[in-house]
Design a protein around this nucleic acid. Sequence first.
DNA 1: CTTGACTCTGTACCGTGGTACCGGGTTTAG
DNA 2: CTAAACCCGGTACCACGGTACAGAGTCAAG
Lengths: 149, 149
Amino acid sequence: MRTSEVAAAAGVNVQTLRYYERRGLLPVPERSKSGYRAYDTQAVRTIRFVKHAQQLGFSLEQIDTLLTLAAGGPDGCDDATALATEKIAHLETKIADLTAMRNSLRQLVETCDRSRDQRCCTLFDAVEITEQTGDDDHERPPRRHPRPN
Amino acid sequence: MRTSEVAAAAGVNVQTLRYYERRGLLPVPERSKSGYRAYDTQAVRTIRFVKHAQQLGFSLEQIDTLLTLAAGGPDGCDDATALATEKIAHLETKIADLTAMRNSLRQLVETCDRSRDQRCCTLFDAVEITEQTGDDDHERPPRRHPRPN
DNA sequence: CTTGACTCTGTACCGTGGTACCGGGTTTAG
DNA sequence: CTAAACCCGGTACCACGGTACAGAGTCAAG
């Protein structure tokens, strides 16, 4: 397949293919004798996967490791398991957050017949349950930093 | 609360507060007589919510409508329900995608003791099930566009 | 009343993820 | 052989989501 065919099939711009190739997301394709890129059909699937993963909130760098995993992961079983397990945990957090948000919105719909400020929408709480920052001395901070020296 | 307190409590840069204010994500705060912003504690929660939602793959524009919903949604019950229902559908798609990805990775972990190319990782398929593009004439395109005229 | 940490507005810049344009070469129907 | 439609590499530019810097004002401890 030629560049523009792949781009059209995957629904992206031609330039994007080259960009992904530079970023290492797309394997360097074969070339025709005149220097044209010749992609295999897998390329289309890869690009679609990238686009999809982006919509789920992954950066291209994160997607890079997902692609590694999609190809079977690192050689060593321990390495592969570790990487996959980490990503699984990551996914489960996201799933939990989104589920909590969805439940909040359902609640809103149920209480929708009330006046606006009587409606029940716990979107904020929904997402706070998974928060953990280390420092919790935000209340009453030390009013002006103790000057150095 | 003053600007820097809010920023520290929410874990963002001071400039980010002003940026969000310009974008309309953060309500315009009261001002002290000398012109300093005086935030209520809700501001911290709002910012944390924004940050969290970003990690889940929402743009600031999308987050804007989520904030509207968090505040009870549009006045009319029908409008509020419609908007919330749309977002719920959106969330469920994401949840399904992430769940499929997670299952693929679990499968990978299970087949991890095999050699790399024998491992089973269906990450690509995981995400394709929810694909729907309108045009499906990607196979064998008409070799050169029919020239105009 | 000075000094250092803070605040303000405004504008310029940055990283990520692309997109567009340029000058040139290639392919193929007519 | 020509012309339309494609391909190439290189570079410049764009939008989004911030982040930094400049110049000026405010506030409280010493």
